[in-house]
């Protein structure tokens, strides 16, 4: 044990001493980096979208561990263990953590981070990550870096600010870097032939100061908005919920697309809150984003302007959406969209 410690110390010293040799120092530095990637699960099912934290962790360099906790996470841990390049999956099986309440999950995570001596902790900028990780960061006295879209090196990260109207490159000086990532900027890792160890994490069995009561999740057979390759969004121009359903849903189905909405459409009750695309809703970056009856306010653009192709149908030729759209059609959406839907279906 002592010998091992001395050996590690020696390594640290040598790497410091010859850090002038760039190549060598990169290797020895990466040996000291270790990242904990937070995975999400629901009812024992691994959320595939959360595997993007492993992708980001691998970009940091150094060792990568995954973390999962909940009532029944064995199967999900085994699935995550198949991701190549991951050394181990830490699992904590305890019903207390099932709903991811930050009051219990934050102490759990903090204990495991301290035990593992991680230099980086990465979670998704999802509802779960946004509620949990700042709490963890505060407990570790670390200034979190939120919603990053790129990793330049182990301490330099890129993140959009001002609703995506400016891009900041920041260097994090904290010893433990707590980071949330923008889902659309890192592709989820795919479980393949990897065989990471699965180990039991520490369980502080934290006292729950809050209680989960219930949830009401919108059920839909359509693709998930956050990860869909095509998204069709409707705005105020749809005029009513009935028209939204009449015009937007058949179009989405013809394209095999997820449905999104502008804030105006959500506020007017045309679509569910969880479908809102924008600065305060979901950020999407599909292959095709079709904006129907959406003017293109700054806050909406923040959520979709990284889409590969943007198409807009709007009767106002001066709508700001046309400034970002790759292809625009000026016309009455109640006429144009059904025609488009029909032609896509039959082509």
């Amino acid at each position: 044990m002592l010998g091992l410690a001395r050996h590690t110390l020696f390594q640290r010293f040598t790497s410091l001493r010859i850090s002038s040799s760039a190549n060598y120092s990169a290797v020895s530095r990466s040996r000291l980096l270790s990242t904990l990637a937070i995975l999400e699960q629901r009812d024992g099912q691994l959320l595939q979208g959360s595997l993007n934290t492993l992708t980001a962790a691998k970009k940091i360099g150094g060792t990568v561990h995954g973390f999962l906790a909940g009532a029944n996470v064995s199967a999900a841990s085994e699935e995550a263990a198949k991701v190549d390049g991951v050394e181990q999956i830490i699992k904590v099986e305890n019903g207390v953590y099932e709903k991811g309440l930050p009051e219990t999950f934050a102490p759990l995570l903090t204990e495991n981070i301290k035990k593992g001596n991680y230099t980086h902790v990465i979670g998704g900028h999802t509802a779960f990550g946004k509620s949990l990780l700042p709490r963890v960061a505060a407990l570790l006295d670390s200034q979190q870096v939120s919603d990053i879209t790129a990793i330049e090196d182990e301490k330099t990260f890129v993140r959009p600010i001002y609703a995506g109207n400016a891009i900041a490159t920041v260097e994090c000086l904290d010893p433990v870097k707590v980071i949330t990532i923008r889902g659309t900027a890192f592709a989820p890792a795919t479980p393949e032939s990897g065989s990471s160890k699965i180990v039991e994490g520490v369980d502080p069995n934290a006292q729950a100061s809050a209680q989960w009561v219930s949830e009401d999740l919108a059920k839909s057979d359509r693709p998930d908005l956050g990860s869909a390759s095509k998204v069709v969004s409707g705005g105020r121009g749809l005029k009513s919920k009935a028209e939204f359903d009449n015009v937007i849903l058949p179009l989405a189905d013809a394209l095999g697309a997820a449905v999104g909405a502008s804030r105006a459409a959500v506020d007017s009750g045309y679509a569910d809150n969880s479908l809102q695309v924008g600065q305060t809703g979901k950020v999407v970056a599909p292959q095709l984003y079709m904006a129907v009856g959406i003017s293109g306010a700054i806050q909406h653009l923040a959520g979709m302007k990284d889409s590969k192709v943007i198409a807009a149908i709007n009767k106002d030729a001066d709508a700001p959406i046309f400034q970002v759209a790759d292809v625009g059609l000026v016309g009455d959406l109640f006429e144009k969209v059904p025609e488009f839907t029909q032609k896509v279906k039959t082509s």
Binding site: Q143, P160, A166, I167, T169, V170, A317, D326
Partner: peptide, 29 residues
């Protein structure tokens, strides 16, 4: 704890093409 190295404008989007009708839209897509 965070040092801002630089702040830049996001990459502007190209395009802004408008088409005449639905067939044009489908063709362009």
């Amino acid at each position: 704890r965070l040092k801002v190295l630089k702040v830049t404008e996001p990459a502007p989007r190209q395009g802004g093409d408008k088409v005449e009708d639905v067939d044009g839209l489908i063709g362009r897509l």
